[in-house]
Design a protein around this nucleic acid. Structure first.
Lengths: 230, 230
DNA sequence: AATAGTAAATTGGGTCACCCAGTAACCCAA
DNA sequence: TTGGGTTACTGGGTGACCCAATTTACTATT
């Protein structure tokens, strides 16, 4: 039995989410003018002050610019000045799935190769545990399947003993989350996935880096084919 | 004659600055309780609302936590908990330079390879322009050198025609910014850098992907050696 | 003495009405 | 065409106010 801490959502957070979505979906483009505070506050049924709090956050992230007397505007993502990491993440979120998959193919194949070289006995145990989780219970919800898939891939990147790899994998698994969830609709996908994971695990266990990278490449290529098909 | 845009400082920004300083100087440690809104607002001679705006920004950055009825607290930076992309970035920022460099070696080599395959005439022009910028003026400040270095590497990732690569490169160049700036102190580094860049450029221009990836690897290995030496 | 209950003070969450200064759009005169 | 006003609008900021959750201190119970 597991309980999660309840974290009440503040008003300003909801507003940020909404505006971020609009920016992500390009319904708000750089240069666009936002509705006046008073008007938008009324539309959202919140006070001007709460709305302002949201705007301050977006402002501090360099996403919008306030001109007193003029209005608020979506900011240009400039090359020179503010290249906040925030902006970069936002750009990544707007990337196409196929581009993300191509990028993932490149470094996760390499991660598998390195993991095969560096994995300790403990690393291998952790990977195996994650591997088996997927095959344990007969019926899992899709999001739980995705979660155990995440665990497996993170376990492998952990075996690379480079924390940057782990974080880049986290980032990508997060960015691709929705897409990965959809793949479970393919009949027999779970069993296939398990076999592919098993092959990768075996190669890493044998410290066979060539085999590991090949198995990973095969796995990722399959995912790509499924995604293209969807 | 050049004029700078006047950007008035908002109240909330000053507050953020003050609190950030306190955190940096360890006068505010994780777990510490901040003074109540009403009290602090009075001390700072600003309204509660303005103070709140500052707190919201700090909150959204994960630096403080608000407990209604309880107070505001400096937050622990936890690894385990929520894996927001924000936290991932925070983790990446704390990564060791060598880990970052290893990661960069892996995907930028691959980016160079792909760029050599896909570069259009226009891409090549852009890369060449960036290449020449570094060699143009005799004396550049270190940060300007780093900037033109950034431009060159981004031009190459742009030639990969995968926006994800561009953003990952941006992220890494940003994370490694300080380190890269230091390398200019090595005598003759700039000339060496130019030669290495030129070799990469030539390979891409010839669409020789093997040569391109080798040249890039050599370049990055050199950088790593310098960094290890510093 | 330890515990459970309770009332009051405190704290953050949020709203509302209000004032100020800068902006934008327009008109008008030089 | 240019510069000076006028006016409506917009963001910046304030202060008083209410609510709900937390904390604290005190009380009654066991």
């Amino acid at each position: 039995m597991e309980f999660k801490e309840i974290i009440p959502v503040r008003l300003y957070e909801s507003v940020i989410e909404q505006i971020m979505d609009l920016i992500k979906n390009n319904e708000l483009k750089p240069g666009d003018k936002l509705p006046p505070e008073r008007e938008l506050a009324e539309k959202l049924s919140i006070s001007r002050n709460s709305l302002r709090e949201a705007f301050r956050v977006l402002e501090s992230r360099g996403l919008i610019k306030s001109k007193p007397g003029g209005g608020r505007f979506i900011r240009e993502i400039r090359e020179n000045g503010h290249n906040n990491t925030e902006n970069i993440i936002l750009s990544l979120k707007k990337s196409s799935i196929l581009e993300l998959l191509e990028a993932r193919e490149i470094f996760e194949v390499k991660i598998a190769e390195i993991a095969a070289q560096r994995a300790t006995l403990e690393d291998i145990e952790i990977i195996e545990e994650a591997l088996n989780k997927m095959n344990q219970k007969e019926e899992l919800k899709d999001d739980k399947k995705t979660e155990s898939d995440t665990e497996f891939h993170l376990a492998i990147s952990g075996a690379s003993h480079n924390f940057v790899f782990v974080n880049i994998m986290k980032l990508h698994l997060d960015l691709l989350k929705e897409t990965r969830e959809k793949t479970w609709q393919i009949p027999g996908r779970r069993e296939k996935q398990y076999q592919e994971h098993r092959a990768i695990f075996q190669a890493i266990k044998e410290h066979n880096s060539k085999k590991a990278s090949e198995a990973m490449l095969k796995h990722l290529r399959n995912i790509r084919e499924i995604v293209v098909g969807i």
